[in-house]
Simulated scan of single mutants.
Amino acid sequence: MADEETGTVAGEWFVGAHGAPVGAADAAHPARWVHAEDRSEFLAVVAELDPGLHERLAASVVTRAAPHRPVAVVRWLDDDWVAVLTPTVWFTEDDRQVHTGELGVLVGPDAVLTFETGAARVRDRALERLRAPGPAHAPGRPSGTQRVGLALVLGLVGVASDVEVALGDAVADTERVVFDRRTADPVQRLYDLKREITEARRALLPMAAELPELTETTDSRRAVADRRTLERVASTVERIDRHLDAHDDLLSDMLQVHLSQVSVRQNEDMRKISAWAAILVYPTVVAGVYGMNFTHMPELHWLLGYPFALALMVVGCVVLYRVFRRVGWL
């Protein structure tokens, strides 16, 4: 679990309302998409665009960001501009950790401003979606800004889905380790994976809670995306969270099974120790009896007393060994 503050490469594109490719200006009214490297550059671009908008953005959105806690914020700054600040997640295979970053989006009537920290690459996913072929003219086709906003939301959910799949694969690998008695104690691995699942859920739940805000409309306010699409996105987020919860429950079950296995192995070891202790105690008892220095002790002056005592010890140990093997203690 780690937080990354690596900025992505800035860029500027034009997105048309009827399927114009990203990077080419639409003949009508293209939407301008400006991607900043970090939050400070993002705020600087907003201040250059509209100082009043910058003040409202800083007061209602940016100040809500917490340095060590994922926070999702959706605020309508006025009827034309909506700001979104949401955590992003990604999973690294080498250290099996979930990392968190941050995505900021400001959507207006003819412009979209974004910044992203970390390596989730939500912007790249949005670009791929916008570059994908689609119908050039369709009824109810969203505007350029709506297309960018929806592409970013879908990219965000797609990244979260990839993290859930990667965590599911890690859980499956861990399950094989837990039931392999040749491996070391997997408790630390189980705990680390449960912690990463918790981190992923902490980043995902704020986003799911704020998604309905994007569908709020008035006579002069236009939604970022249609309600049906965002409802599907919200259901996808809920499905991801359910899967993460199932992974967490499975890890808890594996931990309980592992502890039960440890208890069973400890009981087996105790039985073996007790059996060998009984076998070793028997000759000691026989030797103690024959080592008593009583005057009228039977067999004390017997010629075959010494070999008889040794034979009695060996036979007793063999009998005890066979008995313990039969009952499964050895």
Rank of each mutant, 00 (worst) to 15 (best):
Asp3Leu: 15
Val22Tyr: 04
Leu190Met: 07
Trp90Thr: 02
Ser252Gln: 10
His35Ala: 10
Gly158Ile: 06
Gly16His: 04
Leu127Lys: 01
Leu53Lys: 05
Arg56Gln: 10
Ile197Ser: 05
Arg232Cys: 01
Gly104Pro: 01
Ser143Glu: 10
Gly291Tyr: 09
Ser263Cys: 05
Ser274Asn: 04
Arg131Phe: 03
Thr114Phe: 06
Ala10Cys: 11
His99Glu: 02
Val71Ile: 14
Gly144Trp: 01
Ala17Trp: 04
Glu12Ala: 15
Leu150Asn: 03
Pro135Trp: 06
Leu244Arg: 04
Arg242Gln: 14
Val15Glu: 00
Gly23Pro: 09
His243Lys: 09
His243Trp: 11
Gly19Tyr: 08
Pro30Arg: 05
Arg242Thr: 13
Asp124Met: 08
Ser260Cys: 02
Val286Tyr: 05
Arg228Thr: 11
Arg201Glu: 04
Ser274Thr: 11
Thr229Asn: 02
Thr183Ala: 13
Val264Pro: 01
Ser235Glu: 14
His247Gly: 05
Ala246Pro: 04
Ala17Pro: 01
Ala31Leu: 07
Val34His: 07
Ser220Met: 11
Thr218Met: 01
Pro70Lys: 08
Ala72Glu: 02
Thr174Gln: 10
Leu304Arg: 11
Trp302Ala: 15
Phe324His: 00
Arg227Asp: 13
Glu5Lys: 14
Thr145Lys: 00
Met1Tyr: 10
Leu204Val: 07
Phe179Ile: 04
Arg121Trp: 01
Ala59Lys: 11
Gly134Glu: 07
Tyr191Glu: 05
Glu41Ser: 12
Leu211Tyr: 13
Pro87Met: 09
Arg181Tyr: 09
Ala208Gln: 13
Ala20Ile: 09
Val61Tyr: 10
Asp38Arg: 04
